[in-house]
Structure formats: structure tokens, C-alpha cells
Design a protein around this nucleic acid. Sequence first.
DNA 1: GTAGGGTTAG
Length: 562
Amino acid sequence: MRILRQIHAHIVAYPHSSPPSRSFLLSKILCFAAYRNIRYARTLLTQIAYPSVFSYNTVIRGLILEGQSRGPIFLFRKLVRNKFPLANTFTLAFVLKSCAIASAFEEGRQVHKHVIASGFGGNLHVQTSLLNFYTKRENTEMARKVFDEMSDRNVVAWSAMIGGYARVGKVNEALELFREMQKDGVMPDEMAMVGAISACAVSGGALESGEWLHAFIYKNEMKKDLEVSTALVNMYAKCGCIDKAKQVFDSMPVKDAKAWSSMIVGYSIHGLVKQALETFREMEEAEVEPNHVSFIGVLSACAHGGLVADGKKYWFSMLQNKMEPSLEHYGCMVDMFCRANLVEEACDFVNSMPFSPNPAIWRTLLVSCKRNKLLQRGEIVAKQLIQMEPLNAENYILLSSLYGSVSDWVKMSHVRKLMNDMGIKTVPGCSSIEIDGHVHEFVMGDWSHPDAMAIRKVLWEVMDRVQRSGHEPWIESVLHNVGDGEKRDVLWEHSERLAIGYGLLKTKAPVVIRIVKNLRICVDCHQVTKIISELYEREIIVRDRIRFHRFIDGICSCNDLW
DNA sequence: GTAGGGTTAG
């Protein structure tokens, strides 16, 4: 930088050179400076009489690399306003990237218009940048439109679109596109693999496809780089195969903070608290600086394991590392206090936050108020929650169960009536199980499955054996204010039981029964599943909305804390 | 001098 400045001074001090060559020299300096001191490069840009579009592009790119969000867009505006120099494909690609990073949706759309007007709409790089901009903004419809309009697509365009679908959880679309890409004669590269594997990780229901992609990497002798391996670790963890995740993780020669975080979070959602904390310790030993996700992993592990003292310890070490806690970190701490029934401390924590609580944090508090039968406090929390999300059925259900917890049936039915009057529908429980590559879905109380009769027969037998083992149904799990016998029947129609029944019908030990459920598992289903795992000697893994439960020999990996 | 990637509480 020192030498560059000297040359710069020299050019300014000896103005006898002709203006074009002077501009040329300055732009050369700018080019080198853009990688080292972007502010300096930016100042230089104003000193060049007629800066080329090349110089502008270099500065815009430099600003993006520096992590500036508004700077590149600002420069582009100036360019358009002055009509000199004219933006080229590089300018458009850079500025679109900047819009994607800065969440500048409106600006990006403006650039899109500019792309069409400028006649660069057919350029592959510009199109891919546009596509990527829309996927980053989670607008897969617009992204797909750009993608469909491309006359020829290379592996980058395919990967961007696959990754876009993965980001919004459109598993089937992502995998479909992965197959189409190969039919089109485009060989997937590592980035395409990452997109497809990540798609399998979303919602945890595509283990078979994920395994197939893993095999694809081996078969084609593809490089298993850091990102591909991390995606595999995450996919296996999210699909319930924590052992397989660990296996891939151990095989990685180099691990960065994201790789470690994936493993820690993986253990955490499986309720393997000791392993999560142990992995964090190993990460520190390996001298890899933990990032904010690593801390989300350890804090949520402490929450699930009831380790309040440890959680506080990690919290302070995070502050010591000069890491600014985010709303998610605060959420983990609130969750930890609530699970330990320290409602008072949880509330203090919420009051000390520099953010206003989001609905999730209010719900965490409300669940805890319900469990501890804190009617007044719960009502205050529920009021906040319903004000924020007046149309979310879950909030009313929670309030109604708060009243249920103190046996206030009158107020409970008021809430029910309010919901009815407002036309708010509850989300029914829904569980799925993958048998021979097909995902079968079961909704609570729904017997429309082709094998419904056979499932009913299996469940009758299971119910009989479970009851003879001495199980008393936990009818508090059923909210409706109806007779106990009816409640017992309703419990046996919970979606996870239908799915488990189907699993018992269609598979034999030692095949693991894997269930994915949209809501949280209820107390009675949890107990019954434990008993089934013992009576039938079957391993059952249930992924509910929050985490995994692995039932073996009558014990659940969550140790009944969830 | 160009475009795409992995981890995130409830």
C-alpha cells in the first residue's frame, strides 16, 4: 500500500503526462488498491477524469468483499444517473450479488428492469446472478422464471436453482431438478451436491434420497470437500442417523467452525447433551474459534439436558469472547430456564433482553406458565402473544390449555368459542413414515389409508399389550373436555400411533421405525412408544417439531425432558 | 477482473 501511495503521489506531482495515460495509471493503482484498502480505491475513483467501467466494477467488487451492503448499490445508482460509463455484464452481476446480500429486494427488481432494458438479459452470468438474487430472497417462482428463460444452462445455473429450492424446503423440486440436470447431460459438481443434500436435510424426511446422493459421490469419485462433508453431517443428523453423521464427521481431514457446529447442533437435536458439550470441548481443543451457531448448539443442549449452571457458564464465556448474543441465543436461555421451571428467572431474562421478544419466546414462557399452573402470569403472556399473532391457532390452544391446567373449564370453552367465531382452524397432528421409498402420511383420527383395517388390528393388539403392562393413559394430554373413556380412544388415534402401527405392520425387526411428526409428541404417546419399543423389541425414532426421540428398550434418549 | 455451496433456539 505504501508503494502504491508513492506512485500515486508521483503521478499527481508530475502532471506532464497526457490525461489518458494518467487515467490509465490511476486505474491500475485503483485495481491493486481495491484488494487492500477499499476506501482508498474509492477515493481514487473520484480523481480519475473518465473512469472506465472496469474501475467501477473493481470498486463495487471490493466493497462486496469488504462486506458493505449499501455501498455497491449506491455506486451503481451513480453510474445509471450519470449514464457514464455504461454498466456491463460484470457490473450487473456484482450489483445483483450485493442486492442479494443486503436483502435489497426492491433495488434488485430495479436492477432486473435495467438488465432487460440494457439488452444483457441473455448473458449467462447476468442470468445466474439474477437467479441467485431471487433464490436468496426465497422467491423461487421468479428464480424459476429466470431459469426457464435461460437458453443454455451450465452447472452453476442448475446448482443455484437446486440450492434455491433446498433453501425454502422444496425437497421434491430440488431432487427432481437434480435428476433433470443429469438427463440434460450436465454432470453435477460439488456445489450441486451440496444443494441436493441440503434439500434432503430439510424436514428430515428424505433419508433414502440423502443416502443415494452420498453413494453417488463415491460412485463418481467426487471430491468430498469441506462443504459437501458438512452438508452430509447435517443431513444424516437431521434425518435421525446421528451415528452416521458422526462417522462422516470423523472422516473429515479438516473441520472449520461450521463443520463443528453442525455436529454439535446434531447432537443437541438428538438430546445427546453430553456428546454435544464434549464436541464443543474438542472444538476448543482443536483451536477452532466457535461461532454464534456453535453457541446455539451448546445452549440448546443445556436447555434440553436441564443443565442450567452449565448453560450460564457458556453464556458468560460467549460474552467473554466478545460475541454479541442474538435473539436466538436469548431464546435458548429462556427455553433453558423454562424447562427447569425457573419461570421467574426466565421472565427476568426476557426483561433484560435488548430485543423485544418474538412470538416463539412468548410461547416458551406460556408453556412454562401452563406447566407450573401460573394463571395470572400466563394470561399476561398470552395477551402479548395473541396481540402479535391473532390468527395463529397454536396461541389459542396454549391459552386454553393454561385454563385446563387450573381446571377452569368455563374460560377454556370461552377461548374455544372465540377461535370458532374467528374461524381459526387448528393444525391437525400429522405423522409420516417412509416405506420402500414412499412417504405415507397419517393425520390424527384419519382412517382413510388403504391399509386402515390392518393398522387398526395391529393397534388393538398393541393397546391390549400396553394396557396389560400396567400403563395408565395420561388423559391430560387430551384437551377436549369430554369423558375419560372417550379421551382414551382419542389417544389411540394420534397420528404418530397410526404411523407406528403401519411401521409394525410393514417392517420386521431389526428395521428401525422412523417417524416424522409436525407437532410435538404428547406425554401419553411418549410413554406408550417407550413401552412399545420394549414389548416389540423395536428401535423407534420419532422426530417431532422440536427434536428427536430415540426409543430403545423402554427408554427414550430425551430422558423424558422435552 | 466475472456467476453458485455447508451450520441457527421454540
